[in-house]
Amino acid sequence: MKPHAEVEQVWPRDGRIRVTGRLLGLDEARERSWRLTLTRRSRTDHVLRYDAVLDGERFAGEFKVSELAFQEALSGAEQWDLHLTDGTHKLRVGRKLDDIRGKKAIMIYPVQPVPGADFGVQPYFTVEDNLSLECRP
């Protein structure tokens, strides 16, 4: 299996989303500075970056859902993909090692309303068991 960021927990609550897990397949991971990145699918030049804390191979990162607000009005759903990056590696955040297939229909996370906006943010697993976010009016 190629290197990736294996999700262990997703905590959507109190206007924040926290993701914890393990970096797998990289021996030199501890020696680097890592960031949790959110990339908007419809505009891949729109990337949000947050510090990720590493403890050995374990990582943790979080962000406020209000930071997903953008200038143009949200007319439909927008998706964001999560990665861990260190300037050299870009690892997709997902959950592959738990033997649960089809997480998209099984693991349903609560929607976090965005304060002062007319949309909410919901983490979800894709059909490939990667972690993404959906912003919906």
Rank of each mutant, 00 (worst) to 15 (best):
M1D: 04
M1P: 05
H4I: 06
A5F: 03
V7H: 01
E8C: 10
E8H: 10
E8K: 14
V10T: 14
V10K: 01
P12I: 05
P12C: 08
R13A: 15
R13E: 11
D14P: 05
G15C: 09
I17W: 00
R18A: 14
R18G: 08
V19D: 03
V19R: 01
T20Q: 08
L23C: 10
G25Q: 04
G25P: 03
L26Y: 12
D27M: 07
E28S: 14
E28I: 06
A29I: 06
A29F: 01
A29L: 15
R30Q: 09
E31S: 13
E31T: 10
E31I: 08
R32S: 15
S33C: 04
W34F: 04
R35V: 09
L36D: 01
T37S: 09
L38V: 08
R40Q: 12
R41L: 13
S42F: 04
T44H: 13
V47R: 04
L48N: 02
Y50C: 04
A52F: 05
V53K: 15
V53Y: 07
L54C: 03
L54V: 10
L54H: 02
D55W: 07
G56D: 09
G56P: 04
G56I: 10
G56Y: 11
E57P: 01
F59M: 04
A60Q: 11
G61I: 00
E62D: 12
E62M: 11
F63R: 00
K64P: 01
S66M: 09
S66G: 10
S66T: 11
E67K: 07
E67N: 13
A69V: 10
F70N: 14
F70S: 11
E72Y: 09
A73Q: 12
A73T: 15
G76H: 14
Q79F: 11
W80P: 00
D81W: 06
H83N: 15
T85V: 15
G87N: 07
G87F: 08
K90H: 06
L91G: 00
L91H: 02
L91R: 02
R92E: 14
R92V: 13
V93L: 12
V93F: 02
V93Q: 02
G94S: 15
G94N: 05
R95D: 11
R95T: 02
K96G: 05
K96V: 09
D98F: 07
D98P: 04
I100S: 05
I100W: 13
R101E: 13
R101K: 11
K104W: 06
K104Y: 12
A105V: 14
A105S: 13
A105Q: 14
I106C: 02
M107N: 07
Y109L: 06
Y109C: 04
P110G: 12
P110I: 08
P110R: 07
Q112N: 12
Q112P: 00
P113F: 02
P113M: 08
P113K: 02
V114M: 03
G116W: 10
G120M: 03
Q122L: 06
Q122G: 03
Y124E: 01
F125R: 00
F125S: 02
T126Q: 05
T126Y: 04
V127S: 10
E128L: 12
D129N: 15
S132F: 01
S132A: 14
L133N: 01
L133Y: 03
E134R: 14
E134S: 08
E134C: 12
E134N: 07
C135Y: 00
P137I: 10
P137N: 11
